[in-house]
Design a protein around this nucleic acid. Sequence first.
DNA 1: CTGAAAGCGCTTACAG
DNA 2: CTGAAAGCGCTTACAG
Lengths: 359, 359
Amino acid sequence: MRSEDLAKLLGLSRSTISRVINNYPDIPQSTREKVWKAIEEYNYAPNASARRLAGVKNKMIAIILLDVKDNEVLHHVKATDDTLIHNNPFFSPIVSAVSDQANKMDYYVLISIVYSKEDLKKVQSLFYQKIIDGAIFVGMQEAENEMIFQLIEQKYFIAMIDTSEVYNKSHNAIYINADNYEGSVKAVSYLLELGHTSIGIITGDLNKLSAKERLAGFEVTLMKHRIELTRNFIYHGDFTESSGYEGVKYLLSGPNPPTAIFVCNDTMVVGAYKAISELGLRIPEDLSIIGFDNSYFASYLNPPLTTVEISFSDIAKRATICLIETIEKEQQQRLVEKVNTTLIERESCLVINSTDEKK
Amino acid sequence: MRSEDLAKLLGLSRSTISRVINNYPDIPQSTREKVWKAIEEYNYAPNASARRLAGVKNKMIAIILLDVKDNEVLHHVKATDDTLIHNNPFFSPIVSAVSDQANKMDYYVLISIVYSKEDLKKVQSLFYQKIIDGAIFVGMQEAENEMIFQLIEQKYFIAMIDTSEVYNKSHNAIYINADNYEGSVKAVSYLLELGHTSIGIITGDLNKLSAKERLAGFEVTLMKHRIELTRNFIYHGDFTESSGYEGVKYLLSGPNPPTAIFVCNDTMVVGAYKAISELGLRIPEDLSIIGFDNSYFASYLNPPLTTVEISFSDIAKRATICLIETIEKEQQQRLVEKVNTTLIERESCLVINSTDEKK
DNA sequence: CTGAAAGCGCTTACAG
DNA sequence: CTGAAAGCGCTTACAG
């Protein structure tokens, strides 16, 4: 059924049909109602392609999950079995948050998982063909930078989630990330509250922005509390399990070892737990451990891990809102936003002051 | 850039541009190359809306995840925290399998999560507006039947995954499900191989097709092995944790209790484990337990659960292939397919014959 | 308040 | 082999 048909049925012109659908003023209530009733009755809906061609907005965004091979996946998530992105715990929360938010704002969502440069071409094509009005990229690595930046320069509307690299200040895009600094402050403050003053850290790969920010939060918090930063309380890890293992061995090797360790992601905690167990120590009685990410396995560790949660839902939701607002305004401004983290208290940290009660 | 512009640049007409893009024969290699080169150079891509309006296929399907409130989610998956579909373990594998397969077949994928009847209207609209060529529905419950069947009658192309209800034989749609019967046969045969002859079952909600099929597999397999079906070895559960708990209490209450129990989904196993522990029995030494679904928590149970895995990836992949083939052929036939399951051997079952070695 | 008409950017018979 | 032209189904100034 076309608008022409419906118009004939009602003895009107398609102009009028179009006007009531698009909510033009100056249409008498009676025709308005008559038209809507007919629309319901005949299940009429304007052909989307025709509308778009006539200049109406698409109202379609894409969520692009990048998993280009020969690159590691998101920096702070260890790839499971087969390095496939859908095994990553953030897949569901991100995708559903984008879908939900877009739906609320009356937008459609296209989903695309990109494994190769060829797939990436198709993504570009989504813009060139005017299928989408904008896109949210997740899991950007250097491999994709070039293409995405090109798109940004071409004035397409783009939001990026969890960009782990330091990004080019000149690009007018939307960047939404977890507030790693704030999360790190939370973690360290928590340990201080429990009475720990001798705190070690196993950092992530310091080429990554997130690792730098987490280290910075650690250092600044300790300094604020006038706690001296001991050089040998800092171990430079790289976000992998084995570096967590090595980190513990290193930090506990000297005299006066720390009573608590801030391990900068949960994956490294797995290695750390292993090392601690090998050393015959107990968590949290002999050593408190706090992680970062609240990975899906954190609650299954023994003991369950106290860690800092990044809400991928919140991040994705903000990205969607910002992107759609940009699309509606029709102009992109540079926008960098940090989303708060949450401390998840479980059983891997213990108070260390005179009384022996747990916080 | 429009095809007209590109044509002028090359001293050709847009007809010719269109012909090389659409791979028409009878175009000299030289012009073909010239045009492609220009397309690359200027990043030209035909406007999708214009193409569609001119009659070219959309090449877009939708994946619709149904989670309409006041209905339970997928029958065999217990809703976690907040009943939201994205907390369900099948979300990622299904979505990514559909995306990957569609991508391979050169189709785009729209994603929509439906929580209300209003959202459902929008889904209908996707068809009426001709935004999509077809759709895959996941998690259908009675609430949505009506609308979906209406769509099918209107000749839209539709595939359904994991339809738990007995479906109307007259509908020309694609139905892809796990082979519950075959999976059940696998589970029971496995117990028989381990030497069990005294086997109980805790069924699911027998209003559901999947529960019926699993029970049928159990009964037929035992009969084939000439094992008598004892009435009090069958407990009618309903796929919930508490019915697993009650089921164990019931099955172990009589004299000569079974040495193994087939629990028809993993959620019920959680309750079953609880009851068994309360009774002071050990798994698998005193009682072997086998589940169904290989839910995400199955390997974390103590002991890790031997269970039957449904590959949602495989199901979703088949649904995508069938749907797209139907779209290309432009005619829907009724198609019902069962996808095989896999037995995942872990530590909840023990051999029970003279020798005491584990299988 | 409402209709006739142009125009959106393609594809595809129809000619030549 | 290739161009001119119709047509896809809308929206939106332009008239009236």
